[in-house]
Amino acid sequence: MNNVFVYIEIEEGAIADVSLELLTKGKKLAQQLGKKLEAIAIGYKLDGIEKQLFPYGVDVVHVADDKRLAPYTTLPHNKIVCEIFKNEKPEIALFGATSVGRDLAPRICSTTGSGLTADCTSLEIGDHTDPKTKTEYKNLLYQIRPAFGGNIIATIINPETRPQIATVREGVMKQEIFDAKYTGVVKPIDVKNLLSKEDFVVQVIEREIEKSKLNLKAAPIIVAGGYGVGSKENFKLLHDLAEVLGGEVAASRAAVDSGFAEHERQVGQTGVTVRPKLYIACGISGAVQHTAGMAESALVISINNDPNAPINTIADYTIIGDLNEVLPKMIKYYKQNTK
């Protein structure tokens, strides 16, 4: 009872990185609370899936295995998770902020009447005293996220309702094996008796999921462009530099929304979080939603024609100038100095 739960996302038999990242974070939270870590795996042909989960310090894996449970649809997954929550009364439940987690978590919260905070960038345990009633709450989950156009960082709590539920984007939390020899128990779920025909009214009739060709998280060097890049054509300059340096191209949300770059290149609170050796920010002003996704880069270079752009304050180098001029020169002097 009152343990920490993580919903495991499974795409064609493979566990999503975000779920393993959440297990890593979940284990830390569980240890702080003196509780167990439990995982929920729902899908088809899940034999042996627990072996991939135990090393993250998972004590219990709830497994619902049925042909009808993959690919994911909302209603059956919702019913299974709600049933587990009803019996196990979790203290905390974590979901990936993916198109699955963001579809499922709100439905669950509406069923259970729990609070939900989306796209958290940090999760901590802490106490709270209600300013009006002076009621004291121990060991709440602080759900921390930027809000309101990134001008503020809000700490959200759910004093009364359980579980305390949060979604987190891929890459925000680190993924670490807890103990390679760790083992727990498997609890199978009686899917046949739990689900009925009405749970399968939504049918997937076609599905084309590409394995992402792009792995921003693993790129040692990232050349990122913002709204200031100006056009899709100008992004070519960024690709040129990335290619020469052996890096990848990323973009801010403003650049993605303007159609300059593909969505999968988006770095920030609603995109990917990256920690490269070098992050070159071109024409990015540096709203906190963006910096939330790149602030842990080892070295940051900002290229901007605005000397007062907020990103300059977290940059190791700022180049004030036009990137149409700066980027070709970077390529030129890189080549010249590595000859």
Binding site: G115, A154, T155, I156, G286, V288
Partner: peptide, 20 residues
């Protein structure tokens, strides 16, 4: 069920920046 515990203004802590 969700309450805002606190709100902080975003202040970016300045690094030592080399200006070019």
């Amino acid at each position: 069920p969700t309450k805002v515990k606190n709100i902080e203004n975003v202040v970016l802590t300045a690094k030592e920046t080399v200006r070019l």
